[in-house]
Lab assay of single mutants.
Amino acid sequence: GTEIELESKNGQREHYTATSEDEARKIIEKAVRRGIKRIELRGASEQLIRDMQEIAKQIGLQYRTDGSL
């Protein structure tokens, strides 16, 4: 699965493990709508990382991946 670590603007951290790319995408989209400061992805697919970079650029988000592409 993909591990997703979120940090909201007030510094609250949340951790999710998505079993599918679809689920990961839903978690990320929800977080973005809620207003999130930072997202870290571990074990994400190349496609998901590309999507994440696109989203991050659009809304000026900090993100990090573990680089295991």
Rank of each mutant, 00 (worst) to 15 (best):
G1V: 14
G1H: 12
G1T: 14
T2N: 02
E3G: 05
I4D: 01
E5Y: 13
E5D: 12
E5T: 15
E5I: 14
L6Q: 01
L6C: 07
L6F: 11
L6N: 01
S8N: 14
S8E: 10
S8W: 15
K9G: 10
K9Q: 12
K9H: 13
N10H: 08
N10Y: 10
Q12H: 11
Q12K: 12
Q12I: 10
R13S: 06
R13E: 03
R13T: 10
E14I: 12
E14C: 14
E14Y: 09
H15C: 14
H15V: 14
H15S: 09
H15K: 10
Y16T: 02
Y16G: 00
Y16S: 01
Y16A: 02
T17F: 13
A18Y: 07
A18I: 08
A18T: 11
T19H: 14
E21Q: 06
E21H: 04
E21C: 06
D22S: 09
D22I: 11
D22R: 08
E23V: 05
A24T: 03
R25K: 07
R25V: 06
K26T: 10
I28H: 00
I28Q: 15
K30M: 14
K30I: 12
K30R: 10
A31T: 02
A31H: 05
V32F: 13
V32L: 14
V32H: 01
R33N: 09
R33H: 12
R33T: 08
R33K: 12
R34D: 12
I36Q: 01
I36V: 12
I36T: 03
I36C: 10
I36W: 03
I36K: 01
K37T: 09
R38L: 06
I39V: 07
E40L: 15
E40H: 11
E40Y: 13
E40N: 13
L41H: 00
R42W: 13
G43A: 04
G43S: 04
G43F: 09
G43C: 10
G43N: 14
A44L: 02
A44M: 03
S45M: 02
Q47G: 08
Q47R: 09
Q47L: 07
Q47E: 11
Q47F: 05
L48S: 01
L48D: 01
L48E: 01
L48H: 01
I49N: 05
I49A: 06
I49L: 11
I49S: 06
R50F: 11
R50S: 08
R50P: 00
D51R: 07
D51K: 08
Q53L: 10
Q53G: 06
E54K: 08
E54V: 07
I55E: 01
I55S: 01
A56V: 09
K57Q: 10
K57I: 11
K57A: 12
K57R: 14
Q58C: 12
I59E: 14
I59K: 07
G60Q: 07
G60L: 08
G60P: 04
L61I: 09
L61Q: 04
Q62W: 07
Y63V: 15
Y63A: 05
R64N: 15
R64W: 15
R64K: 13
T65D: 15
D66W: 02
D66T: 04
S68T: 13
S68A: 06
S68Y: 10
S68V: 12
L69I: 10
L69D: 11
L69N: 09
